[in-house]
Write a protein that binds this DNA or RNA. Structure first.
Lengths: 117, 117
DNA sequence: GCAAACTGTAAGTTGACACTTTCGTAAGCA
DNA sequence: TGCTTACGAAAGTGTCAACTTACAGTTTGC
C-alpha cells in the first residue's frame, strides 16, 4: 500500500514540518535544510522518503532541486484516514448516543418508581 | 504532544487493525491476540502503546482486561490531521486551480495567434 | 577544461521498535 | 491451599531508521 508509506512518513515530526514548509511554495533542498538544526544530508534523506511516499515532487533547475507538496499524494492519505474514521467513528457515535438513551430511560424509570412508593 | 504518540501508534498497520477490532465492541486482550499470528505478549505491547497514546481504554474484570477504542483520543488525532490539511490543502487547491486557469489562458492565446497568422 | 556551488549517496553508529521466551502476579476455583 | 486462567513485565534479539562524516555527481561561471 502506498498510503502506508505516506502515513509512516507523516508520523515523523520533522517530516511534517518539511511538508508544511513546501506546502504553498517551492523550496530548494538547501533552503529547507537551513531551517533545521540537523545536517543537510539528514534533510536530504527525509526529502527522499517524502518523495518516495508520493507526498512531494522534485523539480531540477541547474544544480538546485526544488521540492513542493504533491496534492494528489496528500489527498490519497487524507481520504484513507477519512475512511478509517468515517466507517467506524460514525458507529461509535451512534453507540454512544444509544447508550445515553438507555441511561436516560433507566433514570426516568427510577424516578417513576420513587414517585410510586 | 499527545497526538504525536497517537499518530505514531496509527502508523503501525497491526495497531490499526487492533484499533478496528475494538472500535465498536469491547474485547479481551486474549481474544484480540487470538486473531493475530504473533504471540500474545506482542499484542499486549501493542495494546499498551495504543492505551498510552490515548486511543484505547482498559477495563479490568476478574483476570481479564477488556479494551475498547477511546472516542476522545481518536477525535483528537482526527482534528489534528484535519487542521494539518485544512490550513494548507485549501490553499493548494486554490493554487492548482489558478495555475490551471493560467495554462488555459495561455493555450487560448496560442490558438488566437495561430488563427491570425 | 576547472573550480565552485548545490546536492545526493555511501558507510557507519546509535537508539528505537517489533518481536521472542521466560517469569511474575492477581483472580477464580477445586 | 494449591492449581488454573488471563494477563503484563522483564530481558534478550534482529531489524530498521534517524542521524553523522566523507565522498561523488552535475551544472554553471570563468
Amino acid at each position: 500500500m502506498a498510503v502506508d508509506a505516506a502515513l509512516k512518513a507523516i508520523a515523523e515530526p520533522r517530516r511534517r514540518e518539511i511538508l508544511r514548509l513546501v506546502w504553498h511554495r517551492e523550496l530548494a533542498a538547501g533552503s529547507i535544510a537551513a531551517r533545521f538544526d540537523v545536517t543537510r544530508p539528514a534533510i536530504s534523506q527525509h526529502l527522499r522518503i517524502l518523495k518516495d511516499s508520493g507526498l512531494l515532487t522534485e523539480r531540477r533547475e541547474g544544480t538546485r532541486r526544488f521540492y513542493r507538496a504533491r496534492p494528489e499524494g496528500v489527498e490519497d492519505l487524507r481520504e484513507f484516514l477519512e475512511e478509517f474514521w468515517e466507517t467506524s467513528l460514525r458507529r461509535l457515535k451512534v453507540e454512544a448516543e444509544a447508550a445515553e438513551r438507555r441511561l436516560r430511560r433507566a433514570e426516568r424509570r427510577a424516578i417513576e418508581r420513587r414517585k410510586r412508593q
